[in-house]
């Protein structure tokens, strides 16, 4: 960004917005917008409380469990679809449907199935993340050159070697891209799941603060979530770049 010929770094524009926010907040004109300094103070106080630490722990646990399930099931599902035509025909319809469906609508159903608690949140994370992982894995498997597989067979690779030393590696760039998108969708899943369940983790905090109109705390955890999602996505992106050198050379 440049203003009157001056290059303005990204952080500077953020600073402008924060200053603007602070001014509006100080006037007290808009009840929903407390001063930034107040939010930061609230945030610092918040992270020292046991409630916040417990909520963070619960959230991370649900997220971690849901993502582990999504990767553990999504990757094999994608491999199966990429390798077997009948399986692809049978499952493809559903996976394509779910990958673009408004899944939030299904969370109440999950609550009936799994009860109001962690299981539902884990299931929501799983449901949000698994389809894109399966689809991208399938695409990666279909991209593996036929001759690479023939090479494996002609040099007597066992089925385990064929997958473990050739096929999965050749499909790795797409699999990782799917996992990155899945991780981001999973964050949405954990937030939506917890909000609807609303007795767990950040969902319970959101519920508490919005009901008592405690806007400083409300904004503090909102910002924390945004920052966490961005951090996560950039970590996976950095990892993807490192293996891109061979994806390009394929």
């Amino acid at each position: 960004m440049t203003i009157a010929g001056w290059r303005v770094p990204m952080m500077a524009s953020l600073l402008v917005w924060l200053v603007l926010w602070e001014i509006v907040g100080r006037t007290g004109a808009v009840f929903l917008i407390p001063p930034v300094t107040g939010i930061v103070e609230a945030g610092i106080r918040l992270v020292q409380t046991g409630t916040w630490q417990q909520a963070t722990f619960d959230t991370l646990r649900s997220y971690g469990l849901g993502m582990a399930l999504a990767i553990g099931i999504g990757v094999p599902l994608g491999v199966l679809m990429g390798r077997s035509k009948p399986a692809d025909k049978l499952l493809g319809m559903w996976v394509n449907l779910f990958v673009s469906a408004p899944l939030s609508a299904l969370v109440p159903v999950l609550m009936i199935l799994f009860g109001i608690g962690e299981k539902t949140v884990v299931a929501t994370v799983f449901l949000f993340a698994v389809w894109i992982i399966a689809l991208d894995t399938r695409a990666g498997i279909l991209h593996v050159p036929k001759s690479l597989e023939e090479m494996g067979r002609s040099y007597l690779a066992s089925p385990v070697q064929l997958y473990g030393k050739i096929i999965l590696w050749a499909a790795l760039p797409e699999i990782l891209a799917g996992i990155r998108l899945g991780l981001i969708r999973g964050v949405k899943g954990v937030v939506i799941g917890q909000l609807l369940v609303s007795i767990l983790g950040y969902g319970a905090l959101f519920e508490l603060y919005s009901r008592s109109f405690d806007m400083e705390h409300f904004w503090a955890i909102t910002f924390m979530l945004f920052a966490a999602a961005m951090l996560l996505s950039s970590i996976v992106e950095a990892f993807e770049k490192r293996i891109e050198y061979y994806a390009g050379a394929r």
Binding site: P145, S147, L148, E150, M151, G152, S154, Y155, L156, A157, S158, Q161, K165, I166, W169, A170, L172, I243, Y246, A249, R250
Partner: peptide, 28 residues
């Protein structure tokens, strides 16, 4: 007792020349 050389080389892009050449032996 048979070995194949492929028209499109069929090398592992993520492996060095050394590992590629040794790959048949690695599988064995």
């Amino acid at each position: 007792e048979r070995a194949f050389v492929f028209q499109d080389f069929a090398l592992l892009p993520w492996a060095t020349v050394m590992r590629n050449v040794a790959f048949g032996l690695e599988l064995r």
